[in-house]
Amino acid sequence: MELESVGAALIRPGQVLIDRSAMSAAARWTQAVSEADGVCVVHLAPGADPCEVTAELRDRGLRASPNHVLRGQPLFFGGPASRPFPAEPVPFKHRRSRSGVVIGLLDTGVAKHPWWSGSEWYARLAPEQADAAEGAQAGHGTFLAGLLARGAPGAALCVERVLDGDGLTDEATVVRALHRMRERPPHVLNLSFGCHTFDDRPPPLLTDAIRALDDTVTVACAGNTASDRPFWPAALPYVVGVAAVDATLRRRAPYSGHGTWVDACAPGDWLTSSYLDTTGFSGYATWSGTSFATALVAGVIADGAADEPVRDVAARLLESEEAEQIPDLGVLVRGNL
Results as ranks from 00 to 15, higher is better:
residue 5 S to E: 15
residue 8 A to N: 14
residue 8 A to D: 14
residue 9 A to L: 00
residue 10 L to R: 02
residue 16 V to T: 05
residue 21 S to D: 13
residue 29 W to F: 15
residue 32 A to G: 12
residue 36 A to M: 06
residue 38 G to Q: 05
residue 41 V to I: 14
residue 53 V to F: 01
residue 55 A to P: 04
residue 56 E to A: 05
residue 63 R to Y: 00
residue 67 N to P: 12
residue 68 H to R: 05
residue 72 G to T: 08
residue 77 F to H: 10
residue 77 F to K: 09
residue 80 P to Y: 01
residue 82 S to F: 04
residue 85 F to W: 03
residue 86 P to G: 15
residue 87 A to D: 11
residue 87 A to H: 11
residue 90 V to I: 15
residue 95 R to G: 10
residue 95 R to T: 12
residue 95 R to P: 09
residue 95 R to V: 14
residue 105 L to I: 11
residue 105 L to F: 12
residue 106 L to K: 10
residue 107 D to R: 04
residue 110 V to R: 12
residue 111 A to Y: 05
residue 115 W to N: 04
residue 116 W to M: 03
residue 118 G to C: 09
residue 119 S to E: 09
residue 119 S to C: 12
residue 124 R to Y: 04
residue 125 L to Y: 07
residue 125 L to K: 02
residue 126 A to Q: 14
residue 128 E to I: 05
residue 131 D to L: 02
residue 136 A to L: 11
residue 136 A to F: 05
residue 137 Q to R: 02
residue 139 G to D: 01
residue 147 L to S: 09
residue 147 L to P: 03
residue 149 A to S: 09
residue 150 R to A: 14
residue 154 G to Y: 09
residue 154 G to Q: 02
residue 158 C to R: 07
residue 159 V to N: 11
residue 162 V to Q: 07
residue 164 D to P: 06
residue 175 V to H: 09
residue 178 L to N: 07
residue 178 L to F: 05
residue 180 R to P: 08
residue 183 E to A: 13
residue 186 P to Y: 08
residue 187 H to F: 00
residue 188 V to L: 04
residue 190 N to V: 11
residue 196 H to A: 06
residue 197 T to Y: 08
residue 197 T to F: 04
residue 204 P to E: 06
residue 205 L to Y: 01
residue 207 T to V: 00
residue 212 A to I: 01
residue 214 D to Q: 11
residue 219 V to T: 01
residue 220 A to Y: 14
residue 222 A to W: 03
residue 222 A to I: 02
residue 224 N to Y: 03
residue 227 S to V: 06
residue 229 R to M: 05
residue 229 R to S: 08
residue 229 R to G: 05
residue 232 W to A: 04
residue 234 A to Q: 07
residue 234 A to K: 03
residue 236 L to M: 15
residue 240 V to C: 10
residue 241 G to E: 08
residue 241 G to Y: 03
residue 246 D to L: 03
residue 248 T to F: 00
residue 249 L to V: 04
residue 250 R to F: 08
residue 251 R to E: 13
residue 252 R to E: 12
residue 254 P to R: 11
residue 258 H to T: 00
residue 264 A to W: 00
residue 266 A to S: 09
residue 272 T to P: 00
residue 275 Y to K: 06
residue 277 D to A: 14
residue 280 G to V: 09
residue 282 S to E: 15
residue 284 Y to F: 15
residue 293 A to S: 15
residue 299 G to F: 03
residue 309 P to L: 10
residue 315 A to V: 06
residue 318 L to Q: 10
residue 320 S to A: 11
residue 321 E to G: 07
residue 325 Q to T: 06
residue 328 D to H: 13
residue 329 L to T: 02
residue 330 G to R: 03
residue 331 V to A: 02
residue 337 L to I: 00
